[in-house]
Design a protein around this nucleic acid. Sequence first.
DNA 1: GCCGTGAGTTGGAAATTCAAACCCTCTTCT
DNA 2: AGAAGAGGGTTTGAATTTCCAACTCACGGC
Lengths: 156, 156
Amino acid sequence: MAAPKDPRPCSIADALALVGEKYSLLVLREVCLGNGRFDQLVRNIGAPRDVLAARLRRLVDGGILTKRVYSERPQRFEYRPTPAGLELEPLLMLLKEWGDRHLRADDDRPMVVEHICGNELVPVVTCAACGDEVRHEDLTAHPQAPGWTLSGPAAA
Amino acid sequence: MAAPKDPRPCSIADALALVGEKYSLLVLREVCLGNGRFDQLVRNIGAPRDVLAARLRRLVDGGILTKRVYSERPQRFEYRPTPAGLELEPLLMLLKEWGDRHLRADDDRPMVVEHICGNELVPVVTCAACGDEVRHEDLTAHPQAPGWTLSGPAAA
DNA sequence: GCCGTGAGTTGGAAATTCAAACCCTCTTCT
DNA sequence: AGAAGAGGGTTTGAATTTCCAACTCACGGC
């Protein structure tokens, strides 16, 4: 199909199509914290029950969450992150840290996360190859597929 | 008001309220690539023009983007990331890498990003204090505000 | 029996999204 | 001069989604 006027092929867009809908990442937050039951999710996230049900279905068959029975008779379920889901947790930590820094007063942090090293977690994105912190100026994008147009070294 | 049945106070939720709407992070992707003009954004993202206009307004007054004039007569504008916006770019890189890994075939990568160190960028989230990669098992959450309930060391 | 809990589903009103068309201000082509 | 873009949106109306409250179904406890 890929007709003219097709948006770019892009893994960021693909990832967002799966986890970028309203509430999806909050579901993941809760599930990573161990709060994987339907009513907990409703309460903690504040999402309408029907929307939440739809998100859970989507996340389960997107391979982010699994639904497991924690009680037969009465049958009760719990959602848990898959390995792929857990791999998104650092991204949540980053979002949290960004939010703490830009959207809140210094003394108003609803949650603090501790790293196993004993310090408060301050997540930083680094380059796996050289270990340096990743910063915008140090990146160069190389499109590999059609559909991409970069504004070359344009105006400063 | 914080009545009963209020969702948690949370920086992740706050951050998502600002950049978590549909298309917002794609706008940031484009703007970080230097494609900051309205029509470029429409084409590259594939968003309806009115929705895009709304997102741009929101991102501008959320302090993520600035709108600047790149030509008087005819008056033309361009959107660019603010420092706060640029700080979200590593997060986009992470999303991209996650998407490449989980949502695509190995040989189908629409874009590759090169780090200044000369290698392909593989972003990793590390702890600023100890430098180790951040993994779920190494984290402990400490709620600081009311509204939080953690399922203690619950069922394995 | 009657109430409560967990995990959803249903129904209808309200808010958003989508797509295409339209508008305005220039600039360029002929 | 007149016609035809380009760029940056706004308008309009229909198609989707969201929201919210109420309802269901299956137990378990009192």
